[in-house]
Simulated scan of single mutants.
Amino acid sequence: MLIDPPVRLTESALDNLRLITFPEPFLRVGMRGGTCGGTFVLGFDTKTENDEEYLIENIPVIIDRRELLFVLGTEISYEVQGNGFYLHKPPKV
């Protein structure tokens, strides 16, 4: 059974991530600061025993199991005119 990854990388994010030499083996997506009013986290890290691993368009991504529900549906994009990478969770319809 094929399971879709819990986050989505836009083409702009994929293009820019492919240009980066990762200082750690994985791209970490997460949530910090609690469930209400927390902030998204994007960075490079090593895998721990609490992490789920995904390969999204050949980008190795890890997410802590405890944060999966909070980042589910998050879209990661890259804005050239902005400050780089953005994490956005679209509202449920």
Rank of each mutant, 00 (worst) to 15 (best):
L68I: 11
E57Y: 11
L19D: 13
N58W: 08
P6C: 01
R65M: 10
G34M: 08
F26C: 04
F85T: 09
K47V: 12
R8G: 02
I63A: 05
P60S: 04
V80N: 12
Y54M: 06
P25R: 10
I76M: 02
N16T: 07
L27R: 00
L14D: 01
P6H: 01
T46A: 12
I20M: 07
P91N: 09
L17T: 03
P91Q: 13
I59G: 11
P25D: 14
P60K: 04
G73P: 05
R65F: 12
G82I: 12
I62Q: 05
N16W: 06
G82S: 15
G30C: 03
P6V: 08
G37C: 03
T10L: 02
P91I: 14
G82W: 15
N16Q: 12
R18S: 10
T10C: 02
R65N: 11
V61E: 02
R28Q: 07
G33D: 11
E53K: 07
R66M: 09
I76E: 05
E24H: 09
R8H: 08
C36S: 12
E57S: 11
R8P: 00
C36M: 12
T21N: 10
V80Q: 15
C36E: 14
T74E: 00
N16G: 00
P6R: 02
T39I: 12
Q81V: 15
L68C: 06
R8F: 09
I59M: 12
L42V: 09
E67H: 09
N50E: 13
P60G: 06
L9S: 04
G43R: 01
R32K: 10
V93R: 13
G73C: 05
I59V: 15
H88E: 14
T48Y: 04
G38L: 06
L9A: 05
R66Q: 07
G84T: 12
Q81W: 15
E24V: 00
V71K: 04
